[in-house]
Design a protein around this nucleic acid. Structure first.
Lengths: 243, 243
DNA sequence: AGCGGGGCTAAACATGTGTTCAGTCTATTG
DNA sequence: CAATAGACTGAACACATGTTTAGCCCCGCT
């Protein structure tokens, strides 16, 4: 049972597979199948991807899909679990990071309310970059998942909603006032963050740069910060506008 | 060639079918098939919907799909054309309405800048309500279409983007200032409007009322107006908050 | 009346699908 | 070494799919 970590798996070390399944080396065909499925599902969608195509992409026999995952649906579940695990880990890291940032902001006395707020929003931007910017495959898969009404997607969105509410609380504390419409605020925040993710295929053709390029993403994140705090027509931010 | 309009077809009178096809009465199986396909594609997606399922839902033979549309893909194209036609008409109406509203706002001298801005935003809300609120099937289909990277979806989004820019110009004129970040502003506006549409399946479970109910939609629209103009923490709107 | 055409159908076709089966190979274990 | 376990395979199965074909029925024509 040597749990040798492979480069492919990155953050997935702590993901718990379904009970009763032996957690094997994970450089084997099982992981290859899962990875190929992730890529193809993200590209073409689940229904449009055949088990044979997944197996071919992994260089294996179609029968292995059944052998390892029980069924094609089982494969999807495994991919879901894997992806949601990665995202969960990223979110957990981000939460911890945001918490540190907030404490540091008040602790060092470095900034007025605005400074702390900016820190918080920067953390949000970092989360976005980490989750969405990094991997176009992950983006594609996430895009598909968020459109279903499965239990997994509901859980993911609920998790994001909790995160948004927490960010909003921090932002409100920094701003010294509660949001005018606390009911819709978290959803608006999520729409601003997730919208470009969901709309990427139709939005990208209207831009001259790849919209999830780090710099572009930072610029959009800054615009979102500004919108949330001051509206579209508020005062221009400090002259140091990079990006 | 009696072009009797049917209730089912609503706004679709001016939609031009592909050349070479005789425009028949349109209460026939062709329309029934298209309508059934619209519903099923919206519910389950194109790939997951079989031609047989469409035919069965229309109470017709599967062979008719081929006979009328050439192929399953042809059926999809017809549905796309139909839906995009309806939306185009709604947008055209909305543009006209918004134009009138803006002229009336300045003409009657009824309002300060704020008043005109509110009128403009109300128009946007009306568009949203008209396009998205009315028909859950249309919402579902739109949700699917906006996720593809087809020519049709790109055209639709480009059209929406143009609309958003126009609204933004009007809003800026009313506000007496240009948007701080003119580059992202229209996309942000679209994300706020389209986000809930795309996220409906995962967002609805977190709400206690149907999120496209007219009242709820109006409330969300108002929140969006407020966000765009004053940010999340701006001054509360006039005490007459209905919804 | 005759007749041609289009809406419409049942049955069949070819293919692709998820899945099963029987068996091979390899590595670990007793 | 023998045996067991599990990764893995090619071939087959049952079924669903998009599509084709041949033909029916009814309506509008000359």
């Amino acid at each position: 049972m040597s749990l040798t970590r492979v480069g492919v798996d990155l953050l997935a070390g702590s993901v718990a597979y379904r009970a009763g399944m032996t957690v094997s080396s994970d450089l084997t065909g099982r992981a290859r199948l899962r990875e190929a499925a992730l890529r193809l599902f993200a590209e073409r969608g689940f229904e449009a991807t055949s088990a044979r195509a997944v197996a071919a992409a992994a260089g294996l026999s179609p029968a292995l899909v059944i052998h390892h995952f029980g069924s094609k649906e089982g494969l999807r579940a495994a991919v879901d679990e894997e992806v949601l695990g990665r995202i969960g880990a990223a979110l957990r890291d981000a939460d911890a990071l945001a918490g540190e940032g907030a404490e540091a902001g008040t602790g060092t006395g470095a900034g007025a309310g605005a400074g702390t707020g900016a820190d918080v929003m920067a953390a949000v931007g970092a989360v976005s970059a980490r989750m969405f910017g990094a991997d176009p495959v992950l983006r594609g898969y996430l895009r598909r998942v968020l459109q279903e009404e499965s239990a997994a997607s509901a859980a993911l969105f609920a998790r994001l909603l909790r995160g948004a509410r927490a960010e909003l609380d921090r932002l409100a504390a920094a701003e010294g006032a509660d949001a005018t419409d606390a009911r819709w605020a978290p959803f608006q925040m999520l729409c601003l963050i997730l919208g470009p993710l969901l709309l990427e295929p139709v939005m990208q053709p209207n831009l001259d740069q790849p919209m999830f390029d780090p710099q572009v993403l930072a610029s959009r994140s800054a615009a979102n910060q500004h919108l949330l705090r001051h509206g579209l027509f508020g005062p221009a931010p400090s002259p140091s506008t990079r990006g």
